[in-house]
Every structure is written in structure tokens, then in C-alpha cells.
Design a binder for these strands. Sequence first.
DNA 1: TAGGCCATCTGGTCCT
DNA 2: AGGACCAGATGGCCTA
Length: 231
Amino acid sequence: MDCTYSDYGHSELSLPLTDEEDSVSFLTASPSSSASTSGSGEPLASPSPSSNLGRSDDPRGDKKRKAKGRSKGKPQGGIHLVKRSRRTKANDRERNRMHNLNSALDDLRGVLPTFPDDAKLTKIETLRFAHNYIWALSETLRLADHCVDGSRKQVMLPGYLKNIGPPSPGSDEGSWVTTPSPSSATTCTSSPASPSTSEDYAYKRPTDSIFSFRTIQKDFLNEVSCFNDYH
DNA sequence: TAGGCCATCTGGTCCT
DNA sequence: AGGACCAGATGGCCTA
């Protein structure tokens, strides 16, 4: 609209800061980030109470974030305090919304089987991994269904499916790369994120592990087999 | 240093 | 009218 704030990342900041802007969090920075500003010397305000910058749970280290708004190049002018206040509140809501989204992503990371020393999954990795993981579990159940005499009520779920958690390091020798063909998956093939080639089944960290659910599937089938032998 | 990932700001759009 | 959602823009941090 007509109220565009200058690009905080540039020195062309011409908008006089109001008291509100001085104290409210549309500019944010951690206390130690002042030495790493862009050099524009723009004023930095403290994060709002809802802000979560410099979180200690950031595995990439205590990244010092300094929020930088964008400019659409619209003409700058005086900003009405009402609009300024509205914008600030909207920013807080948006920040909170994104924090909730990230929290949900963290919850999702928590139920995905990864090695403890693995680097934290990125957002896109988390989503793709979860997608593949669900597919693998579904496939495991489907195969188990075929192996148990059609009698599902007798199937005893193994512990790793009752309580999903990271497998012990070194216990997994398989690879998603060799998982069954996509044609056996009935629900994931239409999604853009669905694996479309055998290689897409692999969850690969850039530098380290490939985690496989083949072992889980194999163990599961072994248990089913033992169960049938026993009875 | 380039590229990836991320947090934040921002304006537009849709919904209640 | 105000909030939720979205996508674009921007710049910081980190790694190869």
C-alpha cells in the first residue's frame, strides 16, 4: 500500500523512527549481533517477547539473526502511527505463526528415526523424510498383511513399530536406494514429493548417513514368520 | 566466495 | 475490521 518502510538492510533508511519503532521488534537482533551488522549502521531493536531469535536449540549454532524487511521500492513517506502499530502487530502474529510451524516441524523431527549425532534435518528434508517414512511403514504393514494368513488380529507389532525411535547406530545396513519399486506404493506416486525413481527413495544427508527402513521391514517380517512358526 | 538454509518483514488475498 | 495465510524480498550464518 502506501506505507512502505525503507529497506532496513540499506543505508537509505530515511524514515524517522518513532518511539514505537525504537522499542518494538520490527527490527530484531540478538545482543551480540551488533558486530555483524551489514554495516549500514541501522538501529537495532530488541526482539519482542514472542520473538525467539538466537534460540539455543538451533543446531547450526547460535545463529544471530537480524531481521531485515524488504522494500518493494515504493515511495516512502510518513507512516501513520496507526498503520505502523497494525503492521507491528501483524509482524508479531506472523512471527508467532512461523514459530508454531517450526515447532510442529520439530515435533515431526522428533518422531522420525534419525541417528542422534546426525545434523538436524532441514525443513524440506524433514517433510520428504516423513513422507518416505510413512510410505515405508505402510508398505511394511501391507506386506505383513499378506504374510499372516489374512488374519490381521493375530499380528503382534514389534517394538520398533509400537515405539518408533532411532535405531541403534550400526544396526542398519540397508539402503532406501534398493527399496521396492514405486509401483508398489499406492498412495504416494502422484505427489511431486513422492519418490519417482529408486534413488528418490533414499534419504541422503549431504555428507553422511543413508537411513533405511528395509531393516525394519525385514525384522518385522521375521517376527511375523517366527510368530507363525510358533503357532 | 558462492550457495544453501533460515528468520523476519511486508503487502496482498481470503476468511470470519 | 481484523486475523490467518501466503509468497516475495532481504540479509545473516554456515559450509564446501
